[in-house]
Design a protein around this nucleic acid. Structure first.
Length: 509
RNA sequence: GCCGCGUUGGUCAAUCGGUUAAGACGCAUCCCUUUCACGGAUGAAUGACGGGUUCGAUUCCCGUACGCGGUACCA
């Protein structure tokens, strides 16, 4: 195929990006890169009543964090600029007018109140939500029912109107979805969607078609919730005479809430205690705060990996993928048809795997950040790197590094010796009283040397080494966790070890 | 109500008609470790239900049930 692949992610800037949104971008991105194509970000801000300040920056920042920089975007520009639909407003009218001229659309003058009234009068048990369609449009006030003179009079008087598509009343229309295969609809069940609003802005339906055409989009991927309006888009591509250029479509499955049923929402996250947005987000209107995966301590590699596996797999059982590996193996036809329930435990597992597999150098800036915000100052990066390698396998989320490595930097505030108090005795007390002197005399300071000295001393005094290790750990670490004690001792240094032993002894007194 | 999409263990899922239906998460037990982890081992689903097609169906078709999505001058 000669045409270059071009895909787009087209969010509306109404708030933070949730899991489903990020996954939609991801699949777009993977597909584009897999085929060496272009990935464009187009902001669909056609509804100014829902516009939220900061949402666009948030989206850009999320893409950056995830490593999915668009080739073309409002910020980066590109050959098809502008990339904000609000700035392309002037484009749409001509196409809507052309549709009217060709008899595929019409002017409608109904006020919101009249629409409301229509819905009320025709509402019934069998038809709870009457549609503005081929059955009702002649009962409404539009250029089909009113007659030419009346219409031109209304228009010249400046009466506000919208332009609606005229859906054929009995036609079957279908297309091949890259994920679902053949999908067919009967046009008689689709209503006459508004194409151009009275403020002159297009609705999504007109805007996607026009912009996908103008921007030469070859593949259009979006959430499953768009499937029912696909026939409108199909018709528009036809009516506008662009059938040959119509992109291939794929409707992605939804991400569902972990318990019960339904689409995952940020409320579920609040309720169940996990993030739903990629990054922290505070709604400027309500001041409502929502935590993000990034701030919760997820690595972008893990976040992306986890999202990719929610609805897709390569068929081999492989689960850990880098972005490069995802790009290499991604295939839209292997995307699931059914929605997947989100499992936060599994998400954490991905993060844990990525932390374990990451080098200290990769982890260092993030860990340093966590430590710093917990009040632990790090001055020696090499020392931190050593510590990271020692503790990373026991850290699931980035903030776990605070507890797991804090004692390498600061002595435990007040070592809790409670777990060993019951079996504490004079011999043990003597052991630890004499230990500093022995350690002090050690010519070499390393884990083996400390361990050897420690064990020889224990044997000489006929005390079980095991009985001594826990108190030693408590003195050094402050809790029952962490790497091997002698490794810790070797790392924090002779003076510090001796100081902590003395301090531990004090709290046992 | 109508239209569309979907339905393999608690969850994510492999299987593109054919031996005992992979694997992962989580869970349980055990081993390793006299810390916590990591690692290793073991255990627990007969494929929503009912009909077909076929020598043979989890895999194809139909129906039912259930779930989800849509049914806005929101995307």
């Amino acid at each position: 195929m000669a045409t270059k692949v071009r895909v787009r992610f087209a969010p509306s800037p109404t708030g933070g990006l949730h899991l489903g949104g990020v996954r939609t971008v991801l699949f777009n991105y993977l597909f584009a890169r897999h085929h060496g194509g272009d990935f464009v970000l187009r902001i669909e801000d056609t509804d100014n009543t829902r516009f939220v300040e900061g949402a666009e920056d948030y989206i850009m920042e999320t893409l950056r964090w995830c490593g999915m920089e668009p080739d073309e975007s409002p910020a980066a520009g590109g050959p098809f600029a502008p990339y904000r639909q609000s700035e392309r407003k002037a484009n749409y009218l001509q196409y809507a007018e052309k549709l009217v001229a060709d008899g595929h659309a019409y002017y409608a003058f109904d006020t919101p109140e009249e629409l409301e009234e229509m819905r009320n009068t025709f509402k019934s048990a069998e038809n709870p939500s009457p549609q503005y369609d081929h059955k009702l449009r002649m009962k409404m006030r539009n250029s089909l029912s009113l007659g030419e003179e009346e219409v031109s009079r209304l228009i010249s008087e400046g009466v506000p109107y919208v332009i609606r598509i005229k859906m054929p009343d009995n036609q079957t229309i279908g297309f091949t979805d890259m994920i679902r295969g053949e999908v067919n609809f009967s046009t008689s069940t689709v209503d006459d969607k508004v194409l151009l609003k009275k403020d002159g802005m297009p609705t999504y339906h007109l805007a996607v078609v026009v912009d996908d055409y103008l921007m030469k989009i070859t593949h259009a991927f979006r959430g499953e919730e768009w499937l029912p309006s696909a026939p409108v888009h199909l018709l528009l591509w036809n009516y506008l005479g662009w059938s040959d250029a119509m992109p291939q479509w794929a409707h992605l499955p939804l991400i569902l809430k972990p318990d019960g049923n339904g689409k995952l929402s940020k409320r579920d996250g609040d309720r169940l205690g996990f993030p739903v947005f990629a990054m922290n987000w505070t709604d400027p209107r309500s001041n409502e705060f929502t935590q993000g995966f990034r701030e919760r301590g997820f690595l972008p590699e893990a976040f992306v990996n986890m999202l990719a596996m929610l609805g897709w797999n390569d068929g081999t059982g492989k689960e850990i993928f880098s972005m490069q590996e995802l790009i290499a193996s991604f295939d839209m036809s292997r995307v699931h048809k059914g929605g997947a329930k989100f499992d936060f435990e599994k998400a954490k597992w991905f993060n844990h795997e990525w932390i374990k597999a990451s080098s200290a150098a990769r982890l260092l800036p993030d860990v340093k950040n966590s430590l710093t915000s917990a009040g632990i100052s790090v001055t020696d990066d090499r020392y931190l790197a050593t510590v990271i390698d020692m503790v990373k396998e026991r850290c699931t989320l980035l903030p776990d590094f605070v507890e797991q490595s804090g004692f390498f930097f600061n002595a435990p505030a007040s070592p809790d010796m409670e777990p060993v108090k019951a079996k504490w005795n004079l011999d043990k007390n003597l052991f630890f009283t004499d230990l500093p002197g022995v350690l002090e005399a050690l010519p070499d300071w390393n884990a083996v040397a400390v361990e050897t000295a420690f064990k020889e001393m224990a044997v000489a005094r006929a005390i079980k080494v095991g009985e001594l290790q826990l108190p030693f750990r408590l003195m050094l670490v402050g809790g029952k966790f962490g790497p091997a004690v002698f490794d810790i001792a070797a790392t924090i240094g002779k003076d510090e070890v001796i100081a902590r032993i003395k301090k531990g002894l004090e709290s046992l007194a």
